[in-house]
Design a protein around this nucleic acid. Structure first.
Lengths: 222, 222
DNA sequence: ACCAAATATGAAAAATATTTCATAATTACA
DNA sequence: TGTAATTATGAAATATTTTTCATATTTGGT
């Protein structure tokens, strides 16, 4: 078991690490968001313990950044606040669980095990703000509701979501989704965007695919 | 970077480990197949170096066992033989590369980097003997040829492959693939099996889905 | 406010996939 | 070998998805 600990307070970080080593686990300590991101690029971890308050970026922002980079390593957020709304924010940002400080080490072990058991059997999903895209079942999911997309719809949304925030022109979308060179005169992309938007209405209230006049389409998070 | 080294010869194993540690990598040494399997259950590795000849199980068997357990960690096989047919066997069994002894450490580092770069961008596949099933694109692939399955075909083959060697009855197949309770009178499963077999003809020569009279269907490896 | 270009939409047509069903072939067993 | 049960298969009927296209709406610039 290999654990990444992102915790600013040295005392807590060292205490966690000592306990993990005693259990035969390996643990790496980092103290800011940038270090978390670069560690994840170079190494695989079984779980990430992420402090809520960190220098420069909040744990929440780091969490979002991790998920946006496509990394699905389970994350447990550590926080001094017991506010319930933070928990909701945390889970929305892509965290898997949440431990309130002060905690005892048994609780940490128990939650790690629970999260790993839970996520080991989970299917890969792309977190897209208020909903998520299941890459295996091709469903968009939000809370209880789930909706299966057609293949073109799925491929188009998948591509837009994985380029969140960047405007993609029709030619590119066409070539990525249909896999063939763009031939002017077809409006496949427009039609599929329309259908996609209609379907997403029932899943998420806001308009998450925006048209940029003369340029193309963008997926916006929320 | 976390490396699992499965090598019987202590001298080679220790030399590898020393070199990896010098590079800032972590490495775990094991000396038999069972230890490889159990290590993988408890820890994530970035790469596995696997000796061709090991006590009890051959590296090839261990390799197959790893892939059958659903683990896709990149594997490099180490072998004293320079026989080309072994390389083919190795890749068939699910290995990603192959290094011939004696090797120098630069070659090992170079191959590790190459394999990681290659597999990092690869899509998840299920190795099924002479072909593989791409879980993202829903294609069966064998060497150059690739074939897109329909949804029911994919789901049926996926379920059979992930229960390789065990006979599954029609009721179970129906419920897993169609997601609804079995109602007698339908022969969806039979029809889809027929279509699947016809499609697989062009990919793999042998009959890999066998009928067990009165019981159901099995996927057999090859 | 008006115009031309760009985008959205509804709906028909074509292509694919799924389901149904009748019949043929195969199997296990007496 | 004969028979009933089981499985395989071809093909029609449905359903779904993809593509086409004509028309409506929106947009940015004048």
């Amino acid at each position: 078991m290999n654990i990444l600990i992102a915790e600013d307070e040295k005392a807590i970080a060292n205490s966690l690490k000592k306990n993990f080593l005693a259990e035969g686990y390996t643990a790496k300590l980092v103290s800011d968001g940038a270090a978390v991101i670069s560690s994840l690029e170079n190494e695989n971890f079984d779980i990430i313990l992420l402090d809520w308050r960190m220098p420069k970026m909040t744990g929440l922002q780091v969490c979002k950044a991790i998920r946006e980079s496509g990394n699905n390593t389970p994350i447990i957020l550590l926080t001094a606040l017991s506010d319930v709304s933070n928990k909701i924010d945390a889970l929305k940002a892509g965290a898997d669980d949440y431990i309130t400080k002060p905690f005892n080490i048994e609780e940490v072990f128990a939650r790690i095990e629970a999260v790993i058991r839970r996520t080991a059997s989970a299917e890969p999903v792309l977190h897209c703000g208020s909903f998520s895209l299941n890459l295996f079942t091709h469903c968009v999911e939000s809370g209880e509701s789930s909706l299966k997309l057609t293949e073109k719809e799925f491929a188009l949304l998948h591509f837009l979501v994985s380029n969140k925030g960047v405007v993609i022109n029709r030619e590119t979308l066409f070539e990525k989704v249909w896999g063939i060179n763009y031939t002017p005169g077809t409006n496949f992309v427009d039609v599929t965007i329309k259908n996609l938007r209609k379907r997403l209405e029932s899943i998420t209230p806001g308009k998450c695919i925006k048209t940029v006049y003369g340029e193309g389409y963008v997926f916006l998070g929320d």
